[in-house]
């Protein structure tokens, strides 16, 4: 044994004393630290769960308050009258001005919205900047034909019973991405389905595919 080894017990004896003293001080301020921790924790939880979702979305009105129910009453082929499959199997989506103008070249009724549509868009030949709730990024390939024709699905399954709506609803736009809140879903935790059809994030597609086909599908099926 050398001198160094003998010195160790001495220093070891001294340390418990100092250790006890600092522990007492810590116990005193520990509550305060815990309090602040809880304040920070609860505050950020509340703002994250409650305030953040409202801050994230801005509310926008459609350029024209479109009445689906009214139109369904005057067309013959239901949804397909305006949202149809083209010759090559691709889906027409939202009708363009050309399609609308075939009926609304001039104001026909008394509805101020129709008048606005004709005056602001048809006459100056300007496309209506509809805010599309189901719009997806460009890197997503989605085939309506595969779902509507191939899997025999109803439009309403994903888009909700929009055909019976009498007014357009508020478009909640994500301030960062520009996409509709419908895509993520109205519940920030993505629980439950929104009133207006189905959520439309990638996992939502995959979940449904897993239920219906037994497989989530492959990357390249949607990301070409």
């Amino acid at each position: 044994m050398d001198t160094n080894d003998q010195q160790h017990p001495v220093s070891n004896d001294a340390s418990p004393e100092t250790g006890d003293a600092s522990a007492k001080r810590k116990n005193g301020s520990g509550w305060i630290i815990l309090l602040f921790f809880v304040i920070g924790f609860v505050g950020s939880m509340l703002s994250g769960w409650i305030v953040f979702p409202d801050l994230l979305y801005s509310e926008k009105e459609q350029p024209i308050d479109f009445n689906h129910q009214l139109h369904m009453g005057v067309v013959y082929e239901g949804c397909q009258s305006c949202h149809y499959f083209q010759k090559d199997g691709s889906f027409s989506g939202i009708p363009d001005l050309y399609a609308c103008s075939s009926c609304h070249q001039f104001v026909q009724g008394t509805d101020p919205e129709e008048e606005k549509f004709v005056n602001d868009y048809v006459l100056p030949n300007k496309e209506v900047p509809w805010l599309v709730h189901s719009r997806q990024p460009d890197n997503v390939f989605f085939s309506h034909a595969a779902h509507v024709k191939g899997a025999d699905m109803e439009c309403a399954t994903c888009h909700g019973d929009i055909g019976r709506s009498t007014h357009t609803r508020v478009y909640q736009e994500n301030r960062i991405t520009g996409y509709s809140r419908d895509i993520w879903g109205y519940n920030i935790a993505r629980l439950g389905e929104p009133k207006h059809g189905l959520r439309m994030k990638m996992n939502d597609c995959a979940d449904c595919h897993e239920q219906q086909t037994g497989h989530k599908g492959y990357c390249f099926q949607c990301h070409k």
């Binding site: 602040f36 921790f37 809880v38 304040i39 920070g40 924790f41 609860v42 505050g43 950020s44 939880m45 703002s47 994250g48 769960w49 953040f52 979702p53 994230l56 990024p137 460009d138 890197n139 994500n174 960062i176 991405t177 520009g178 996409y179 993520w184 920030i188 935790a189």
Partner: peptide, 29 residues
């Protein structure tokens, strides 16, 4: 408090949702 904010924020949807949104935002420059 910082630790609380970090902990709370981590357990709130903020970072997860923002990460997702920002990644989509970068696709739309």
């Amino acid at each position: 408090m910082a630790a609380g904010v970090i902990g709370g924020t981590t357990l709130s949807p903020v970072p997860w949702k923002l990460t997702d949104d920002i990644s989509i935002w970068t696709q739309n420059w």
